[in-house]
Design a binder for these strands. Structure first.
Lengths: 339, 339
DNA sequence: GCAATTTGCTAAAACGGTAAATCCAAAAAT
DNA sequence: ATTTTTGGATTTACCGTTTTAGCAAATTGC
């Protein structure tokens, strides 16, 4: 049972496939096709269960109704949830999502973008890994529609949707201070991404504003290929028993936070009694953790929606001016910071 | 700067595009194209940064090198991790993934399958929602390659990759018994999916084998649209203080488990002192939970790999016989069950 | 030295649509 | 009576590949 094509319908009705195409694309009126013929076509199309071949359509029109989503890792709940929101908004506009996980590796994202660029997607939503500036520039140069999410490159004029990382990190750290902690450590990624830099910046600003000296010893930069052992090592150095007398830790990502908590627990430390914890991002894990973890929740739905909208704007008008959207993240104090 | 096409190369070299196509597809030898010409073509193709238009290729060959992945929800870490494994294996074979979240709703999956079926994917990997039997049958009838994951329809002869749910649930429940609990409740989904049925079956079998009567009152079936409140309600009914004197709960999914734990914590219950917990699936949350949660970890990597392999087999030979693969899940005892 | 084969390459069709241009009556306007 | 408009449809071209069929020149066989 072969799929029915435009020509099949046209042949059976003894008309041209152009006519059939026009009718089924709702351009009948515009092209003065008689209602009688219109109805005949529609009826037969339904009978034969005609479904247009999107590939053929794509070849002719140059549009695929598909968005390429390049993120670090779909298995990471942050990106998973974000992906879901993007999928939802895209579907609402008749778009599909093909996703690629880059593992924060620019070589991967490079290959993935190249692969999808061969006429398969109308545009990209990208969380660009560090070192992928040239890829982004190349997209821009070729006028490929795209929008960055989660992080952006300040030196490149592009669309982007991010959160105010400085303010969010500030708020979380400030909260720790207000809760009475002053020896506050920061565990972050040793990676040149502006969102990460800004999180550390917000952390520092909060300390400074509260007249607490910034101790670089207390800022642990993890290699971005971080494994559990790395975090364990870093966290152990921050153990309150040590000379540094750390009282609280600010984790700059949920992956760091989750691994860090595992270590803290395995050390038998009581949270927040022995050490308090706050973290960027708000995975389910933090809600059921005992105690629940104070977290910075990003507005995933809004990020998802806006990124799709901005991208579609760009697709429809490649010369549209770039949109730079900075959203507010929400700090949720929980028991892990003595709240 | 328009993209270069086969014709561009052909024109510049004064040869036919057939020749260029043959060379670039490695069919030069086979078609007796001279090495000299071959090299000229390859060189120019590289110079012009030629990338074949996959859409055009797809139209001609009927193959898109794209797999449609239909799951319940990419934001659910179980499916996120599984998706990642599938993506990896697919990429290794030159395939891309377009995903759709069905929310366990057959109407959604129906639309999604239809949409992707318009020539856009070479095959499907599907976690079919309850009530989607007809869709699966229809795929089968039309000889569309597909493989089911996570659950299958016993009455339909299809490819599938699942875990032995009965055995896994049995093991987890049996573990609870061995730990000394006998009043064991089960929180599951009120949905006609064989994996869910089997989990309850395994739970019951373990009780029976240990001479513990099955108390239907202790089996809570949640509507599959479950929200936190539903779970909270159910869990409250199971509170050990009640007449039922429940000592342990087996959660049939991690989503149920996570919501359930939130409620147990909010009730101020101590785990496992007041009530023990085991759960199907093993999200990060369970590892950092205090205490860590005893869990049934599915072999996600193997499921991902096998599903892609089986699908590709089917794509390459639509009449290949169906493969039914049942993998073992691994029970990981942790402190939540007094381990 | 002539037929048969091999070598090296090409033209054209096809895939299934969409877009632009065109055509031809009949009706309306001049 | 001639021109213009309108309604209703068609023809042609094209998107960028792959595939089928084939052709001329060079080589081989005898």
């Amino acid at each position: 049972m072969k799929k029915t094509s435009l020509s099949d319908i046209a042949r059976q009705l003894g008309v041209s496939k152009t006519l059939v195409s026009l009718v089924l694309n709702g351009k009948a009126k515009e092209h003065r096709i008689s209602d009688e013929m219109s109805n005949k076509v529609k009826k037969l199309a339904k009978e034969l269960n005609y479904k247009p071949n999107q590939i053929a359509k794509g070849l002719r029109t140059g549009r695929t109704n598909t968005i390429g989503l390049i993120i670090a890792d779909i298995a990471n709940p942050f990106f998973g949830k974000l992906g879901r929101e993007i999928e939802k908004e895209a579907a609402a506009h008749g778009y599909r999502i093909v996703f690629c996980s880059s593992d924060e590796n620019p070589d991967n994202s490079q290959k993935q973008i190249e692969m999808l660029q061969q006429g398969q997607v109308d545009g990209f939503i990208i969380a660009p890994p560090a070192g992928s500036e040239n890829q982004i520039l190349s997209l821009k140069r070729n006028k490929i529609p795209f929008v960055l999410i989660d992080r952006n490159f300040p030196d490149i004029d592009t669309n982007y949707i991010v959160v105010d990382n400085i303010q969010a990190a500030f708020e979380a750290t400030d909260h720790l201070v207000k809760q009475g902690y002053s020896k506050i450590a920061c565990v972050t990624l040793n990676v040149h991404l502006n969102n990460m830099n800004q999180r550390v910046l917000g952390y520092k600003q909060a300390l400074i504003e509260n007249n607490i000296p910034v101790d670089e010893e207390l800022i642990k930069m993890m290699p971005f290929t971080h494994e559990k052992d790395d975090i364990a090592e870093a966290v152990k150095q921050l153990e309150p028993g040590n000379k540094s007398k750390v009282e609280a830790i600010f984790f700059a990502t949920s992956k760091l936070g989750i691994m860090g908590l595992e270590t803290l627990h395995s050390l038998g430390l009581h949270i927040p009694g022995d050490i308090a914890v706050v973290s960027f991002d708000d995975p389910d894990a933090y809600k059921i953790s005992q105690p629940p973890v104070s977290a910075i929740a990003q507005p995933l739905q809004e990020i998802g929606r806006e990124s799709v909208k901005v991208l579609l704007d760009m697709i429809h008008d490649r010369n549209a001016e770039t949109k730079k959207i900075v959203l507010k993240a929400k700090f949720i104090p929980r028991k892990s910071s003595g709240f």
